[in-house]
Amino acid sequence: MHRGRGDRPRAVECYRNALTLYRRLSDRFFEADTLAHLADAYADLDHVGAARASLRQALTVLGELHHPDAGRVAARLRQIEGQGVAG
C-alpha cells in the first residue's frame, strides 16, 4: 500500500515488520513473499545491495519449500544483479 503511494521508506518499514511477524509464526511462504516485496521496495530506493540480499533470502526459503515462485524470484534476482550496481 505505501509503496504504491510512493512512500517507499514506510513500505520498507512495514515489510520489515511483517517479516518479523511471519518469522515468529514460522510461516515460511509468507516470509519469502514478504522478502520479495521488501526487495522491490529496497530497489525503489536504489538500495540494490539490500534488494539482492532480500531476494537471495526469499529464493533460499522458496527453494526449501520447493515452491514454484522460486523461478520468478530467481529471475528478479538476475535482473537486479544484471544492473551491475553496488550497494
Rank of each mutant, 00 (worst) to 15 (best):
G87A: 07
R52D: 01
A58K: 01
L55P: 09
E81V: 11
G87F: 00
A36W: 14
A11Y: 07
G63N: 10
R28T: 04
L21D: 11
H67Q: 14
C14L: 14
V12A: 07
L62N: 10
A36D: 15
E64F: 01
D44L: 08
L77M: 03
L35M: 07
D27V: 06
A39T: 06
S26W: 09
G6Q: 04
S26M: 03
G63L: 03
R3D: 13
T20R: 11
H67N: 14
L25K: 12
V48A: 10
I80G: 04
L55V: 07
A86M: 08
R56Q: 15
A70P: 06
R56S: 11
R10H: 04
T20C: 03
E13F: 01
Q83T: 06
E64V: 06
V85Y: 10
L45N: 02
R52I: 15
R72I: 14
A43R: 07
Y15N: 08
F30Q: 15
F29H: 15
Y42D: 00
D40P: 04
G49M: 02
G84W: 10
A74D: 12
L38N: 05
R28Q: 14
R52P: 02
A39I: 08
G71S: 10
R28C: 04
T60W: 07
R52G: 01
P68R: 09
T34F: 08
V48E: 08
L59K: 13
R52T: 11
D69T: 09
A53M: 02
R56A: 12
A75W: 01
A39E: 08
